[in-house]
Structure formats: structure tokens, C-alpha cells
Write a protein that binds this DNA or RNA. Structure first.
Lengths: 156, 156
DNA sequence: AGGATTACTTTACATGGTTATATATTGGGT
DNA sequence: ACCCAATATATAACCATGTAAAGTAATCCT
């Protein structure tokens, strides 16, 4: 499998990645994701937490913006918002300028919850990071921006 | 939050990871995982593919072994196996020595499918890896073993 | 022999993703 | 001014895949 990219200078470089590495990457990231998505952090699921962070970043956000930012379909966002509104963590009102738009924001309780999550121990992850050597941990944090880039919804 | 590990020499080192990094790591890996799990690779879901690889590694495997190896509950494995057996990719028979055990193996069609997956382009992942510079790609592949370690079901 | 244990399956449920369809609002053309 | 198309969200129905709890069959132990 050949991956091509444009370099700084505008040249294009062909790179070869072994299929085996691709499969390992897919399987490993897939599994890690599953495990992390199942950690409920005492109450809120991954999907809801992720949405709350997105709301915080984009506040005040429309539902469609959130769907784009989260990389999921609008109905999925609608359902999650329903839940967050029920829980009193999120406020949803109609945009007075264009009443088709929903204006979404965190309630004070939602902001408080967001900060609680930020401070939380992230038990599973912490425990498992403890298996790593300092070098491994350093390397992992070093590629964090790369991982973020990999699933950035802004890019093509 | 403090993470502790034992070093080569048996010493213990306390390391501090910023909460923010923990949260970023969790959110990013969670999202990547979701995306990758949704790539169906023309027919088979992530869960089924992952299970087939596990079967291949452990062949002949019992259902319980597979559940442990996949880090999922036995009912989940049972259901996935039902599907794979339906598809003719996996054979399930009773262990003649202990008829409570299921003996699971890939059929020839299953092995063929496994190899097809190994050769497949992994479209989404390939395309997105193309965004990375050579250095980023190298770094990512470099931490692959670390990521694998992080979710290794063998370890505590 | 018979009860406890083991291994797997069945059942029932929750979450969160999808597509297709419905509803309400806005804006534009004549 | 009115109607139609487009837009933003919501609803409905479906699917996959995780769980926990209860059921079944086989084995083991005394």
C-alpha cells in the first residue's frame, strides 16, 4: 500500500507502510478506543463527555456545528443533547435570529461537571500508563498531536 | 494525578502527568477508535475482524479464551461467533475431552478472508496517514508497541 | 449418587452509531 | 404577498456490540 503526501517544498514523496503495520495500528487503536469509551467516569459516557467538551470549545454552538465537530450524524447529536439537557448540564434554546438553529451552551452545572471531569483521575488510563517506562510515556505523549491530527475533522 | 511504576532496579518512580494530557489522550484515542471501528472494510465489522485474528493466533481456541483475549464478556463472543459461523468463516465444535468447551477454528474460507483483510488497503487509515509528515509517521509507528502494551490483556 | 463448579449460551437491556422521513423556519423569485 | 426550495433540527426505525443475570449441560469431587 502506498501513501503519498506533499512535502514542504511541494514535492511528493511515496512512502511504503507494511500492511502488517496498518492492521496492527487499526486493531490496536480500535481496541484502545473501545476500552476508553467504556470507562464511564462515574456517570457520563464517553460520547456525552466528548460532546460537553465540544460544546465548551464552541460555545455557543449549533447542533449542526457539534455534529461536524464530533464527526457524527446530526441525529446522534440530537439524542445526546436530549440526554444532557435532561441531566441539566446543557441548555438548548432557539436562536432568535434564525429559529431553526439551536443555541447550545453548558449550564453552570455542566461547566462544573466539565471541570470535575478535567480533574478526575481517569482511572483506567492512569493505571495502564503506569505500566510504561518513562521513555515510553514520553514517546506516547509526544505523538499525541499526531493522533489528534489523524482524526481532525477540519482537515479533508 | 500521580502515576507510579516499578523500574528495572525495583525502585519506584512517581511521575506526574497533567490532567489535561490525560483527558486529551482519552478523548483522542476514544475518537480514533470509534472511527476505526466503523470502517467496515467491505463487509466485516471491526469486532468480527478482531475476533478472527484472535482465533487465528490462538487456534484452536475455546470461547472463554477468546473472550479473555479480546477483553470482552463471553456473551459478546458467543454472539460474534454465531455470526462468523453463519458466514462460514469459523467452525465451532465441542471438545471431545471436555464437552463444555467449544473448539473454535477458522475454516479455509475464514483463513482466506483473514488474508484478504491483511492485504486490504485499510482505506480510511491510509488516507489519513497521508496527512502526516515522514517524521510524524515514523513517530507513530514507533509508539505502536507502546499502544499495544497499553491494552494488553495479559498484563494486570 | 448427587451437589458444586465450570463453560458456554440465552435473554434482556443500554448505548450510540446509521439512514430515511417529518417538521419548522427562512429566504428568494415572480 | 405568496409559494416553493433550501436549511436546521428532530423523530423514527434499525443495527451492532457492549453488559449483567439467569439457564443449561458437562465435569469433578466427596
Amino acid at each position: 500500500m502506498t501513501v503519498t503526501r506533499s512535502t514542504n517544498g511541494g514535492r511528493r514523496t511515496a512512502r511504503r507502510i507494511r500492511h502488517e503495520d496498518l492492521v496492527r495500528l487499526r486493531m490496536t487503536l480500535g481496541r484502545l478506543g473501545r476500552v476508553l469509551r467504556q470507562q464511564t467516569d462515574d456517570g457520563l459516557s464517553y460520547a456525552l463527555i466528548s460532546l460537553m467538551f465540544a460544546i465548551h470549545r464552541m460555545q455557543p454552538a449549533s447542533a449542526g456545528d457539534l455534529a461536524t465537530s464530533e464527526g457524527v450524524s446530526p441525529p446522534s447529536v440530537t439524542r445526546s443533547l436530549n440526554r444532557l439537557v435532561e441531566l441539566g448540564l446543557v441548555a438548548r434554546e432557539a436562536d432568535p435570529l434564525d429559529r431553526r438553529n439551536a443555541v447550545i451552551s453548558l449550564t453552570p452545572a455542566g461547566e462544573q461537571e466539565r471541570q470535575r471531569i478535567l480533574r478526575s483521575r481517569e482511572v483506567w488510563l492512569s493505571d495502564h500508563l503506569a505500566r510504561l517506562t518513562d521513555e515510553q510515556l514520553h514517546a506516547l505523549l509526544g505523538v499525541l498531536p499526531v493522533l489528534e491530527l489523524l482524526c481532525d475533522p477540519e482537515l479533508p
